[in-house]
Write a protein that binds this DNA or RNA. Structure first.
Lengths: 187, 187
DNA sequence: GTCTATACCTGGATAGAC
DNA sequence: GTCTATCCAGGTATAGAC
């Protein structure tokens, strides 16, 4: 891994663990093993580094979700697979986390990938729910857009609760609860 | 409001908006109108101030929730009232927000109120769900603990999505989706 | 490309005068 | 109780040598 790459990866990790306000250029240098001059040679500063790191996290979230959504099985099966996918619940979501960062939210460039990622994810899930409803997998009364939003919220909130309780099991319980409610809609 | 009180309130607001790592003593002084010496006269430092502020936010969350839970109506009605209660979705949850703060999570004293608040809230909701199930309001297959965790997660995740989209409507949509699923369990 | 030196500001606090 | 002075570390960069 070259220096530029290590800088981006280190920034990604630090943004995940500490957010933008909690991450200093010095910490990035230490974690990546790059020197001061080296870091500022490759990037103009903390903001540009964060832009690269956030873009990468957003892309990865999307790719991993799409891998489940595009897999085999019925709509219910693919949604369940996505919700139950292994996750490091205590680390939280590298993208959702950024919504709590005042400086990320205040900067349109940093904010955009966060906004787009959740818009895409919710829409994609809503499409699957609509597909399942059309197939007769779900009851006709199911609202795809609202349900998709609730499901994504369960994941994001599950991370919050898992961290609050310091227990990955709480995340799993939130998912169980959501799937329990959802499958009441399965015909 | 006396100086001590203004200091706590200002800290509460800043922790809500910017988290612990994003809040400086200077910012607290500016917002409260208290001077340096005055702040350090009333509190030993940022940590003690945060402790007072977090305790207050946690207590308030609990009191406001209990007001809905202890109100009139069936279990379903009280749960619905709680979920639909007016909230400033874009500001997020003053307690849940702290789970994203590395320094809050690293300090047992700062962490405890966060942990206890969500444990209490989830338990309280699970009790209502169990009560409703016993009354025949919900289907016998409903799992109170998992469902309660999912409902709290929808709220916490709803804040995340609302901030990501910069739209309070997204929060409302998540709640709608959750209630839509829940009421499929209503007999 | 990477290093070291330098700069200026803020974070977080203590000391002592009033 | 509140004010001002002072302190040292760290945040965030720029400049220029190698």
């Amino acid at each position: 891994m070259d220096t530029r790459e290590r800088l981006i990866e280190s920034t990604r990790e630090l943004l995940w663990e500490r957010g933008y306000v909690g991450t200093s250029p010095k910490a990035i240098q230490e974690r990546s093993g790059a020197g001061q001059g080296s870091m500022y040679h490759h990037f103009h500063g903390k903001l540009e580094l964060a832009l690269a790191a956030i873009g990468r996290s957003a892309g990865e979230l999307r790719d991993r979700a799409e891998a489940e959504f595009a897999g085999p099985g019925t709509a219910v099966e693919r949604i369940t697979a996505y919700l139950r996918r292994e996750r490091d619940a205590l680390k939280g979501c590298p993208v959702g986390r950024l919504t709590q960062d005042p400086e990320v939210m205040a900067d349109p460039e940093l904010r955009r990938p966060v906004e787009e990622t959740f818009a895409w994810l919710t829409d994609r899930l809503a499409g699957l729910l609509a597909e399942g409803r059309a197939n007769g997998e779900f009851a006709a009364g199911l609202d795809p857009a609202a349900t998709a939003t609730a499901l994504v919220a369960v994941l994001q909130g599950g991370y919050v609760l898992a961290r609050a309780a310091d227990s990955a099991a709480v995340y799993a319980r939130a998912v169980d609860g959501a799937l329990g409610l959802l499958t009441a809609h399965v015909r």
